[in-house]
Design a protein around this nucleic acid. Structure first.
Lengths: 151, 151
DNA sequence: ATTTAGAATTAGAATGATTCTAAGTGTATT
DNA sequence: AATACACTTAGAATCATTCTAATTCTAAAT
């Protein structure tokens, strides 16, 4: 029986886990919760396969399709972000704070970089009139300090 | 017979086309030249398939593999750029001026936006010490003016 | 408690994009 | 003419992702 008189708009299932993110009370099935927890505990921007491997230690029978389903659900509900840096596998990121991605072209590592000051793309680039911006994705490519030290 | 006494470092073949880009004298085979010309004449950030279709009007027997080979060659020689905005097909761009990409999430259109003023990512984001930046990729997602007007 | 409806999960097939392979062709130098 | 080597090709192979159909699970209705 639900605790409040009206049903939550998002139907719950499974163990009915909840996650308070950005003021919203999102309910998650056990698998979705595990996928989220794995990603939240990762700072290396794992791919779907990486996440499958990590979730398997807790849920050995989870399938890749379910991981993709969970990631899609979490992404569309704004709990995680999808990162496209290169051709090939997409990466995922549970850091919801405003940030950009530094991508080392030598070792492939991806590092979050947080803003030092406010940034408004409209100030720097001439967008056609009437354009509405919902979000921006900045990827900074180069060599990380560790790789730069080696060469 | 080559015009100068020493051979160009990049061996030429075919009709030995040349292209002066960014001060360099790049030699191109006919197919590479056609792929470049098609892309240079396009402002819509075509995919490899789009480019295949357009090149076919001049060279009906060109294959997709050759288009990919040519695009890879042109990209690695800095004559064109690869653009990753979404999952799925990559797009290509012959605009070598500093610019960013506006991506309409409604109609999928991609528009180049040129800088209104100088932009240095290091001023806005805290990168670890010793990091070397080679280039940045900014994608601005939103709704283009045409799609915004419709809704 | 049982039934029902609908969402979640699964394995595996299907799709789509890209890369690889091996053979063939062409061009330039020997 | 012979050789070497880059370019091109078709098709196979690979990789990432999505789809499909069957199954399981949960919550609500009976």
């Amino acid at each position: 029986m639900p605790p409040s008189s009206t049903r939550s708009p998002a139907k719950a299932s499974g163990l009915d886990c909840r996650l308070a993110v950005l003021g919203a009370d999102v309910r998650l099935t056990p698998h979705r919760r595990e996928v989220f927890d794995v990603l939240a505990a990762s700072t290396d921007h794992p791919t779907a396969y990486d996440i499958l491997d990590r979730v398997k230690s807790r849920s050995p029978h989870i399938s890749l399709a379910t991981v993709y389903n969970c990631l899609e659900h979490l992404t569309s509900h704004g709990l995680i972000k999808l990162v496209h840096l290169e051709r090939g596998q997409s990466r995922y990121c549970a850091n919801l704070h405003e940030h950009v991605h530094f991508h080392c072209e030598t070792c492939g590592k991806v590092i979050d970089a947080h803003p030092a000051t406010d940034f408004d793309p409209a100030k720097f680039w001439n967008l056609p009139k009437g354009t509405k911006v919902t979000h921006t994705d900045l990827a900074i490519h180069g060599t990380c300090s560790a790789c730069a030290a080696k060469s």
